[in-house]
């Protein structure tokens, strides 16, 4: 039987911190997964072609992975505008993956100059000119960084020709239909509206006062966990909403409130419904939820 040719993959970086590269490198099956591809170029792996080859030649590319925010001019690598290199391979690729919030929406680095820096196909939540060219093969994997499994699973789904239903921002629904609150170990405190008194306690919710954006952030972090073991909210850090086109908002450690009422509601929950339930839940003092859950002897 003839050996099937492996699909080619090209991982290209623009204005980035390399966070997605290092995040994906922490995928337990990183090596096995990458071995299913012929790697044209990768930021940290020793590859057959150099970035200069990528910039100056016309190499094959089935799957293009983009990392980092883009500007059409003023960001050169190997004497070529990185945007033009990305365009060249985007045209050839069967699939374009924007890995991380910078490549998808512009992310943190867009904040430096929102007029000229954005994602490859979206500037914030708005589709740009590039979007029109590539929307048919675009898969968005926002996150700061993207979770290793998000990238790994999408690559595997491409390899195995699985259907990948997407939302309007081209995020795979199997990952982003959840919100980051789902599976949070503090959810009981959320239900009974008990805020964490100060940082550094396993008890208490971070939604009311401490800026947690998990209930309105599309991501499955607390379902699949980070590094196979934990998550921001599990260790008492608020979710900063890093998978959303609005990332990074301002005042990240404080809940934005309107007359003391959270300004952002959990996805799809009308304010009236939320306030009715919240008001009732808040009216009860549940002893167990107001004391430490573990008591150590002195």
């Amino acid at each position: 039987m003839p050996k099937l040719k492996k699909p080619t993959i090209l991982w290209l970086q623009s204005i980035t911190c390399n966070g997605n590269t290092h995040s994906f490198f922490s995928h337990p099956d990183f090596v096995a997964l990458m071995q299913k591809f012929e790697i044209i170029h990768h930021p940290i792996l020793n590859t057959k072609y150099t970035l200069e080859n990528v910039a100056n030649e016309n190499l094959t590319c089935d799957v293009l992975v983009l990392e980092g925010a883009f500007r059409q001019t003023g960001m050169k690598k190997a004497n070529k505008e990185i945007y033009d290199i990305a365009q060249k391979y985007a045209k050839k690729a069967k699939h374009i993956i924007t890995a991380g919030s910078c490549a998808t929406f512009g992310g943190i680095f867009r904040q430096y100059d929102t007029k000229s820096i954005g994602g490859f196909c979206f500037d914030g939540e708005l589709p740009n000119e590039t979007y029109k060219l590539f929307k048919k093969k675009l898969i968005s994997i926002p996150g700061c960084p993207a979770h290793p499994r998000w990238i790994g699973s999408v690559l595997s789904m491409i390899l195995t020709h699985r259907q990948i239903p997407l939302d309007e921002l081209h995020r795979p629904l199997e990952i982003y239909a959840y919100n980051a609150h789902v599976g949070c170990s503090r959810s009981e405190y959320y239900e009974w509206k008990i805020d964490v008194s100060r940082y550094g306690h396993k008890e208490g919710c971070l939604f009311y006062d401490h800026g947690c954006q998990a209930p309105f952030t599309h991501a499955n972090c607390n379902k699949i966990l980070w590094n196979e073991i934990s998550s921001k909210t599990r260790v008492g850090t608020p979710c900063f909403g890093c998978t959303e086109p609005t990332f990074p908002k301002k005042n990240l450690w404080h809940t934005t409130t309107l007359m003391g009422i959270p300004a952002s509601m959990p996805i799809g929950i009308p304010k009236r419904a939320y306030l009715t339930i919240a008001g009732i839940a808040k009216s009860f003092t549940i002893k167990r939820l107001n004391e430490p859950i573990i008591k150590y002897k002195k």
């Binding site: 960084p145 590094n227 260790v235």
Partner: peptide, 13 residues
């Protein structure tokens, strides 16, 4: 690291 910091990269703990 993530047992205490929640995640890597980009923890906020």
């Amino acid at each position: 690291l993530a047992i205490f910091a929640g995640q890597w990269p980009h923890s906020g703990y």
